[in-house]
Design a protein around this nucleic acid. Structure first.
Lengths: 214, 214
DNA sequence: GTCTATAGAATGATAGAC
DNA sequence: GTCTATCATTCTATAGAC
């Protein structure tokens, strides 16, 4: 199994390296604002964050923020959409691998590692949807449905190929996604696992859930 | 396996029936306040909830709330502590079963079903800790550590007895808890699973993760 | 124990100078 | 594009009548 895990790691690392959260915000000021908002939203939540937090975190006045973003909620939306897009691209990149078992290992490795490494972004993505306007919430809901469809499609493919054995494909999809997503809630750097080690561990556990031969 | 799942269901149902969230609040007014707070905290989060929400949800004025609770944060703390205590009692009751495999099935079934059935309470328990004062956060953190210890202890016992095979006991503990906890985030009544069906499904998936013979 | 009224602070967002 | 100043509102919590 050593070879297999090393391959998953390398493929997963390549995928993660190809994703850049910041591509949407080219200027230093934008990045300072988005970075400060990200930190505060992740730590205190959207409603627990005031513009003063974001202003102080980015070294600007509250008034200056409005030159770059129309409102606090628009700032959250931009962040949430970008994070959801990254997560979707991540699972899509993993799912292109033809062998379902290998694809699933890479997917769970990357998805888990991303939730650990980018814990701040992931928290906002996974837990602050309720603060969006209805129209904005629908945009990210569609991205979430796409992500879920990719994972479900891969499990379907694995079952059809005889690589996986699952009692309930939708249930297995929910479980695989839950493992990764919940990492954003509990993971703290400096604990028992590096993001890499956790990704490998969870790839193995997900494989067992899907009835993959060890 | 039909017999085994039926037994897990019955044992889990007995445990859930023995737990009463409301025992701490005997009067109708208290229950109205706590119920309204629970709904709003779960839907909008602590910081997204104003006293007006709670007052309107309970049919009282905002001033009347202060007769029953010292502050909004004390109300959250009372709720969070009670919910954490229920979750701890739940896993403890499941872990008394001598056979590790049976105990784990009952534990995952009950824990998952509780997070689905009591989704409102579970959301506040799992996602609003950050809004507590440092002193109150420490109280619930200790309850969480106790819960984690019970699950870890059961996995240790199963490994020692040869009933489970896991590469990393702490990692397996995190994964088993994550499966149940994350249900509070995504579960909606009326979807593809009843809380009972999801509990059974996840008990099976957790068993596979732990290397339990089917 | 409940109410109306309100204090006192903080909030999201805007106006207008530079 | 950034600032200081400020508006209008909302918030948690309290005062005092019943």
């Amino acid at each position: 199994m050593g070879r297999v895990t090393a391959e998953s790691t390398r493929a997963g690392e390549r995928i993660l390296a190809g994703l850049d959260l910041w591509a949407e915000w080219p200027t230093a000021t934008q990045r300072a604002i988005v970075g400060a908002a990200l930190e505060s939203f992740a730590e205190r939540g959207f409603h627990g964050t005031s513009l003063k937090h974001i202003a102080q975190g980015s070294g600007l006045s509250t008034a200056a923020l409005y030159v770059h973003f129309a409102s606090k909620e628009e700032l959250l939306f931009a962040l949430s959409r970008r994070g959801h897009t990254i997560a979707l691209e991540l699972v899509r990149a993993a799912a292109v691998e033809p062998d379902p078992a290998a694809a699933m290992r890479v997917l769970v490795y990357s998805f888990t590692r991303w939730h650990a490494e980018q814990r701040t972004t992931a928290r906002v993505v996974q837990y602050e949807q309720g603060a969006l306007t209805a129209a904005h919430a629908e945009v990210v809901a569609e991205l979430r449905r796409d992500t879920e469809r990719v994972v479900r499609g891969l499990i379907d493919r694995g079952v059809a190929a005889g690589a996986f054995t699952v009692p309930d494909v939708r249930g297995a999809t929910a479980a695989v996604l839950s493992l990764g997503i919940d990492v954003a809630r509990w993971f703290v750097p400096g604990g028992p696992w590096t993001p890499d080690a956790l990704g490998l561990l969870y790839a193995g556990l997900a494989g067992r859930m899907l009835g993959m031969p060890a």
